[in-house]
Amino acid sequence: MDLDRIRAARHAIDPLFLDTPFYECGPLGRRLGCAVSLKLETANPVRSFKARGTELVTSLLAGGGGDAVVCASAGNLGQALAWSARRRGIRATVVAARGAPAAKLDGIRALGAELQLVDGDIEDARERAVRLAAQRGVRLVEDSLDIETCEGAATIGLELAAGPPIDAVLVALGGGAMATGIGYVMKALRPEVEVICVQPAGAPAMTRSWHARQVVTTDTIDTIADGVAGRHPIPEVLDDLLAVADDAVLVEEASIRAGMRHLLDLAGQVVEPSAALGVAAVREDRARFAGRHVVTVVCGSNVDPAAYRGWVGH
C-alpha cells in the first residue's frame, strides 16, 4: 500500500462513506474500565465499511475497465458492490452462501445485483465466483486480495490518525482488508498506537496464521460472526498483516453476544456480531486495557432482527 494512493482514494469515494462518526462513549468506557471511542462505519447507505473499497473498484471500472463485476460475499461486500456498481451503470453479480443472513441477501437484491446462492460457506462462494468471472470474462473482486479493498478500508485509518490521541485500535479480522488497511496507516502516521486484530474463536484461521507466521487453514466455522468467518487465509494478505498488526486475539461467542448487548444498552447501537469483536476483546482482557484509550471500529450493522433479539436477549 501507499499513503499517497490512500489519500487520493478519498476523492474516488462518495463522501457519504467518509468521515463517519468518531466519539468517546463514556457509559461503555465506565463499564469496561478504560476510555472507549467508537468509529461508526455503520452510518452510511450500506451500513458497513465495505463501500470504501467498492467505490475504488467501480471507479476504475467506470474509467474504462469494464462494465460488469463479480464477487463472493458473506453479505456486506455484496451490498457495497451492488450500491457502487449501480450508481456507475455497472452490472454486479454477487455469489453468497445460501445460509447467509437473510437481511444481507435481501439488501443485495434490493440494490439491483444478480444474486447467486451456493450450498456451503464463504469459501464455496469464492470458488463459484472465480469460475463465474472466468466464464463471463469480467472483473473478479477478491476482498482483501484486491488492493482497492484494502486502500478503501485504509481511509478509516486516515480519519483515526487525524483524531485525538489513542493507545490502541481494535479491528475485526476476517479476510484482512480492514486490518491491513488501518494497520498500514497507523504504523505510518501514528506508530505508537497498538493495532490489535480480533477474531472469533470459532473462526480462527487468520489469527492462527498470524501467530504461526504462515497460512493455517481450518475445516469448519462455528460462530455467529458471519462477516469474519473464513477458513482459508490469503497468503499475500497474511504477509501484509504480519507487517502492520501488533497482536491478533480470539474471543468467545459469549463475549461477542455480551459486546452486542453493551453496544445496544450503553451506546444505542444495533450491530452485527463482527462489529462487537473489539468490545468482546476488552471484556475478556480488562487488565490489558485498564486506563488506556482504545478505539473499536464498529464495522457493520446488517443483522436479521430475529437473530439479533436472540443474541442480545432483548
Rank of each mutant, 00 (worst) to 15 (best):
E236V: 13
A275M: 07
T223V: 06
V237I: 07
R109V: 08
A80I: 05
R5T: 00
L38N: 07
I6A: 01
D222Q: 15
A134V: 06
V251M: 08
A177F: 13
A201Y: 10
G310T: 06
P45D: 02
Y23G: 14
G291T: 04
G26P: 12
R286H: 10
L77Y: 08
E24A: 15
V198W: 01
E272V: 04
M260F: 08
G163Q: 07
G268D: 14
E252S: 12
E148M: 13
N76H: 11
F17T: 00
R261E: 12
G112W: 09
L263R: 12
R91T: 06
D219E: 15
A80P: 14
A267R: 09
G181K: 00
D19Y: 08
A110M: 12
G268L: 10
T155I: 01
C150M: 15
L111F: 03
V279T: 09
Y308N: 08
M178H: 10
P27S: 07
V294Q: 11
K104S: 14
E252W: 09
L173K: 08
I156A: 02
V237Y: 05
L117V: 03
D222M: 09
F17E: 00
D246F: 02
G137M: 02
T93M: 06
A100C: 12
L77Q: 10
G176E: 04
N302Q: 12
A92E: 13
Q116M: 15
Q214P: 03
A280P: 06
P191E: 03
E151H: 04
S255W: 11
G75A: 05
Q199I: 09
R30S: 11
L145K: 09
R52V: 00
A92I: 07
V141Y: 02
A154I: 01
V249S: 07
A110N: 14
G259M: 08
R10K: 14
P191R: 06
R190D: 01
G181I: 00
V138E: 07
A258L: 14
S84M: 06
A68E: 08
A153W: 05
E55F: 01
L238Y: 05
I6P: 00
S73R: 02
G227V: 04
V279D: 02
L32S: 10
G181V: 00
G64N: 03
G291P: 02
R5H: 01
G29N: 04
F17S: 02
Y184Q: 04
R126Y: 14
P235H: 08
A72L: 13
T54N: 00
R91P: 09
L61N: 00
V215Q: 13
A280E: 01
E127P: 10
V198F: 05
L38W: 08
P273V: 09
L115H: 11
H314L: 15
R257V: 08
H211N: 10
G313N: 05
R87W: 07
A287N: 12
A162S: 12
C34D: 12
L81Q: 04
R87L: 06
I224G: 03
A280G: 06
V169W: 03
V271D: 05
A275Q: 06
V69Y: 03
E253W: 13
C150D: 05
A129Y: 11
